[in-house]
Write a protein that binds this DNA or RNA. Sequence first.
DNA 1: GAGTGGTCTAGACCACCGT
DNA 2: CGGTGGTCTAGACCACTCC
Lengths: 240, 240
Amino acid sequence: MSGGRRPSLVSQVRTELLQEIGDGRLLAGDKLPNEYELADRFAVSRQTVREAIQSLVVSGHLSRQRGTGTFVTTAPSRHALDTNVSYTAMIRDAGLEPGETVLEVLRRPASAAEARALRLGSGQEVVAVERIRRGNDRPLIYSRDRIPADVLGDAGQERLSDSLYAMLEAAGHRVVGATARLLPVLADRRLSELLQVGEGAPLLHIHQVDRDTDDVPVMESDEWHVADAFDVIVNRRAPL
Amino acid sequence: MSGGRRPSLVSQVRTELLQEIGDGRLLAGDKLPNEYELADRFAVSRQTVREAIQSLVVSGHLSRQRGTGTFVTTAPSRHALDTNVSYTAMIRDAGLEPGETVLEVLRRPASAAEARALRLGSGQEVVAVERIRRGNDRPLIYSRDRIPADVLGDAGQERLSDSLYAMLEAAGHRVVGATARLLPVLADRRLSELLQVGEGAPLLHIHQVDRDTDDVPVMESDEWHVADAFDVIVNRRAPL
DNA sequence: GAGTGGTCTAGACCACCGT
DNA sequence: CGGTGGTCTAGACCACTCC
């Protein structure tokens, strides 16, 4: 009756190891017990331990060396661009107090470019949101987001106090991935006023399309970041 | 006697599925046979099929929906910043002919900042390389790379005709990951001359540290990219 | 309820690293 | 050589989606 599903064993082992890394029981460079011992300790199969470790390797917390052991890596960037789709979270992780000013919320027919990016038929509508995101009250990002009206459903014209990602998730479209194109640009008059920087100041323009669990595009965004607002970090890896 | 190790079954299944996606036997949106059928077809266990599929989900080629099936996604960006550590490859993938001009190769003691980033002791030396990377003969990137002399070993003062990544791999330090910090900047006089753009033109500055399989930092780089040189794409994903 | 992917096990053998 | 991670299997049961 009471909801609450049991987390998987893999996830339990992962969480426990993550805690040991987080609270200093395991330090960077430390060697983990071997997989058989860990399986014993957690009373699970070796396969289960391996999956937990694998997920921590992917997220950059551990590295494995065949024939040698598993080791704790130097902590990866938690607020990296590649592993986080929410700027609110990134601003907070950077140690700043996130805030925002909504400039405009508008429901209108999609442009040709939007229809292409969001795979919409002609005449379909989008909800367009224009915002200034702030960190410690300083303007950091000017953003224009467009979400198909169909995707939001009933939640269409509600308040935007929560993040757009929360709204999308509530509408049954959890965002799990996005493709971003990054481009350095100069602030024109309008951007310089919105972001309170000089005209010609360097900005980072990011054009992004977010996708949900079904790989359906659910939001298109254009953002302009103030240069030194917060570090934009990308974790890179060699192709498989 | 003849070397050639057999690729793992997982990798064989992965490769076969990738080919079917690549040559159009499987198109975006298509549903794959279920895991039991695939296991049958490839004469492997379901677990093996699952691992192959999992790796294609991570690389963005497939998406799984519990209770429904596994589907081919729209092709992910193959020359994305997050899944490729070589710019030569990225320039080539962007459809341009890569070229380079080496401005300087120098062996010198590491600076304090370099020693910190590369975890070097005092007095240790680095090999510093300054280059202009080109696409179709047009300057795209000005880069300064520093590699600890110890890491290169004998290959230290060889020619640089191959990529630095190839040199590192030959020296037993295959680069498998990197952390990059991106920052929009304006071209100063020197950069404008090197990259043949106007002074004050927007550039993307990337500071990067590459790591090998043992999570050891093996190269520190600073790069300045011409704004519209080629698209800088980042695939983003929600945290685990 | 039928079909699908998600989790988990116990056991086996292989490949690589260091001594 | 012993210890480690890497691969693979056969089978079981669970949870979700859709009809």
